[in-house]
Design a protein around this nucleic acid. Sequence first.
DNA 1: TCGCTATGGTGAGAACTTCTAACCAAACAA
DNA 2: TTGTTTGGTTAGAAGTTCTCACCATAGCGA
Lengths: 232, 232
Amino acid sequence: MATARRERYRKQTREEAKAVALAQLSESGTAGISVNAIAKAMGMTGPALYRYFASRDELLTELITDTYRDLAETLAQAVADAAPADRFRALARALRDWAKRQPDRYLLIYGTPVPGYHAPPETTEIAASLMRTIFDACATVGEAVEADGGGVDGGRQQPLTELEAELARHLEGAGPWGPGEEPGGEVKGRALRTWTRLHGVISLDVQGQFTGMGFDPSVLFEAEIDALVRGG
Amino acid sequence: MATARRERYRKQTREEAKAVALAQLSESGTAGISVNAIAKAMGMTGPALYRYFASRDELLTELITDTYRDLAETLAQAVADAAPADRFRALARALRDWAKRQPDRYLLIYGTPVPGYHAPPETTEIAASLMRTIFDACATVGEAVEADGGGVDGGRQQPLTELEAELARHLEGAGPWGPGEEPGGEVKGRALRTWTRLHGVISLDVQGQFTGMGFDPSVLFEAEIDALVRGG
DNA sequence: TCGCTATGGTGAGAACTTCTAACCAAACAA
DNA sequence: TTGTTTGGTTAGAAGTTCTCACCATAGCGA
């Protein structure tokens, strides 16, 4: 039981390996992560690392789940720190800031799936938790319109009946809502479409598709936020 | 001059190699494309293919430019076939259909950038041409509102001044408009934001981020189209 | 303190990868 | 017929992931 030192050491070198892997990731992308190179950078030979990670894929998985957790915490924190009325704005900005700070990590979870990689069930759980945070904040979008805008029926102008009907039926487990407090298709649709819009500009930005166009992507993002909170 | 047979043969085997590469792409992703494996599948040894492609990167570049061209043609055709009022709807649906039919090719140009790959200037030209087609159709979005909607000032409800000011200054070369016929920031903003919204749902769909949520992504896409043409 | 075991490291090597070099045969041109 | 260009081969260098056999050492109980 007093072998805590060993476990501590083990965890420590695993963390160091992942840190080096992250550095490689931002330099040469997903494919640039090399077990051999990581080991060499840590001052040991290649096969030694296989005492800590069964395979390159396991290391990748660890990187991905860590990223999910980090992003989820960051967003939850941002939401918690914001005034209730600004929750969505805070989440949106926190999401983009995080993505811009570490583009490769954003692409690690929301980008092109890694070649032969299949996410273990453990990963999807963490992913769902992250989605819960995002959906929760996105669902509040447009509620501001209800407050100062129209009458009883709130900010609803045009019914998105098809989508809402579809979502009312499905999106059960994946949604952020526990059993019983599940909202109608309207809220679900708002959350879903808000998320896709945020991802649209963030992903294009992070992938560098805006470079050369000469405008400031953050202005575009702010405009999209404004349009979203106005219910547009 | 009568060496046409040789050139024809050369072009033919290049096409065959690219076809095999595309098959590998859809099976195992970008990293799964192996020069050796392609050659073997074509009935020759690995190094032989280096007579046709200087490197793996050159093959990838060819794949990418081909994809740009293919998508550009597809979209241009769809737009040309549609009635003027339906141009945007036609483009949006053609874009999604194409992406769903060959997800890996969509990700090849709009997904996570390939590891060590740097696009040659030739590529960016073709990409710009594609953007021209997309922006052209996206810029028409909301014009329908002007027709049956409001008065002289059209479908403009809230001014996105910041973004429009930014775009009025920049987005010169990248825009789809020739010198002289360049529109104001308003149209530019509409096109840009429309594009990012289309990409948002298409990319998440193509990357499989909707799987497990239980709803039909095409319904979401149609809802997004509806929202867009209504100026929302 | 002695010895055992689990752990962490090593080098060798198999099976892949891209890509170069040397060589050979066949097709085309003069 | 002779010469050159082109397309193919095998060999091999340098890299990758990952397995295996071996060895040293850290921490444990007796």
